[in-house]
Design a protein around this nucleic acid. Structure first.
Lengths: 304, 304
DNA sequence: TTGAAAGCGCTAACAA
DNA sequence: TTGTTAGCGCTTTCAA
């Protein structure tokens, strides 16, 4: 292009206040420079941090991020996946509900760029970012057993839907406690919807053999546990010790400061986005069904 | 359409596995059935809740939501606005940085559907959703003065950028305290970046006349305050009373339970989305520059 | 170097 | 009721 035409062009752009239309561009190029993320619930701190990390990378690459809230409802998830595809989104990062296996199967067969976060889906070959949940549960079990608590209670959201992190953490925690040679410790389990949790705790604590330690599976269950202990005026850790997975904003200045096992949410989100972008930009390189585990960190404080 | 052709059509859809292409549709219709939200920082609980409310309404209306993180940087905000427009997004909900007045001005002149959240921008005629910040500050001041604390300290993020909620809350709090007839109370102010806050608190508390009450302007400053008090082993409320704007997840079961002034984030987000959709669907009705204030709620607990 | 034209997949208007 | 066609704004190819 000659210098002359260039200035002419720039002038015209200026005068007409020309704004390119990316929709037309997308139609032609078959790329929307947009990716979609389907989270179970954006209100979880973990989801927020993951979204933030993904969004940062999108910004860097001049992409946009469409955020969808599946609310753990397969129906909603399905609708979102279809809408995202119809909008020619270049790739999807999902916290899969597990209720749309056939649909996900189809997407992978079409070679649609996709990454799963936090959860695996049985039988699907999709790259997945997970916490090393066994390690997290082991860290919790060891910490409680080393301090010689005698009656451990695991508090968890529903274990019935085969949600990866819950199942893996629960299994490993139970295994660890039972593996112990002396078999002198008691282990109780509470699992159910958040709204029923306090009632279940109440029941457990009315029994003769009260737990002296609680393992809260995630941030929301931790809230329930702390709220319950407060209501019952139970002291941490003298009456009951507490340890949990997921870092919470107040852990360090709670009374007492809470021992937690945190997951590197930002790095995990960033990694998911990096993999997705490598799929989008170099589709031939897709090797699919890689599972990448991130290490949890024990933050030893004073609640156990 | 006859019944016969209908079944034929459905069959064809099935066979060819036809998926409509919304990009082509958007190009023709000049509507992307997508809206954009530009938040200052998605990591704030308030932003998350607002996004959640907007997303819920989008889902209902078969729209999609593009989430952008401006990080309070006008440059980043500008890029996002331009990208969103280029993508023919049907409307924008923004937490404006205040650094792109001309650009926003242009958008309103074009009749581009837009709603501001949380912050106003001087001289712009844009519908805006705000908290009744004066009321919130007054609630805090009254609560502390009624309990007869003598040396009040207001802790705030930087007041230099004219960010609406900060300015309004600060002004009203100061006014309320000074209005008192006896003038016997002392008032200190700390304002600055989060990372400098602990140092400033330290300094203040080393002085002879120690504050006996703190008003934390939002959730992040509250974190700093609580963290500082914990470190200094200062008891709430016997050594220092605490009250804050923004509800935090742990308020009810903290030791002591925290008195907070909460804003109805979900309703505010929902309202913003409703207004935006009314602009999009009935553009003739736009009356612009309406300011809608929501009432804060005092949650009286035990920290003051 | 510049200009012209085809076509992405859809919708809307018109014709048959 | 059904079929045909123009055109949305861009990119890409080919011709001038």
């Amino acid at each position: 292009m000659s210098k002359e035409t260039r200035t002419k062009l720039e002038q015209a752009v200026e005068e007409l206040n020309y704004q390119p239309n990316m929709v037309a561009r997308s139609l032609k190029q078959k790329s929307s420079t947009t990716i979609g993320v389907i989270v179970a619930n954006i209100l979880h701190v973990y989801s927020t941090q993951v979204i933030r990390a993904i969004e940062d990378l999108c910004h860097e690459k001049d992409f946009h991020l469409i955020v969808c809230n599946a609310d753990d409802q397969p129906e909603k998830e399905k609708k979102y996946i279809e809408m995202l595809k119809a909008k020619q989104v270049d790739g999807i990062i999902a916290f899969p509900t597990g209720g749309n296996v056939a649909l996900y199967q189809q997407l992978t067969e079409e070679g649609y760029p996709m990454v799963f976060m936090d959860r695996t889906v049985e039988g699907l070959k999709v790259d997945t970012i997970l916490l090393d949940n066994k390690k997290a549960a082991a860290l919790a079990a060891d910490e409680l057993m080393n301090k010689d608590y005698r009656h451990l209670t695991m508090v968890s959201p529903p274990l019935t839907h085969q949600i990866t992190p819950r199942v893996e953490r629960a299994q490993e925690f139970i295994k660890k406690v039972q593996e112990e040679d002396n078999h002198t410790r008691k282990l109780s389990t509470i699992s159910g919807e958040i709204r029923e949790m306090k009632g279940q705790l109440q029941e457990l604590f009315q029994q003769k053999e009260r737990p002296d330690a609680i393992f809260a599976m995630n941030d929301l269950t931790l809230h329930e546990v702390l709220s319950f202990l407060k209501k019952e005026k139970l002291q941490i850790p003298s009456d009951v010790a507490v340890i949990s997975v997921d870092e919470v904003s107040f852990a360090a200045f709670y009374t007492p400061p809470l021992t937690t096992i945190s997951q590197p949410a930002f790095e995990m989100g960033k990694k998911a986005a990096e993999i997705l972008f490598s799929f989008i930009l170099e589709p031939e390189k897709q090797h699919r069904s890689k599972i990448i585990r991130f290490e949890p960190t024990l933050n030893r404080r004073e609640s156990c």
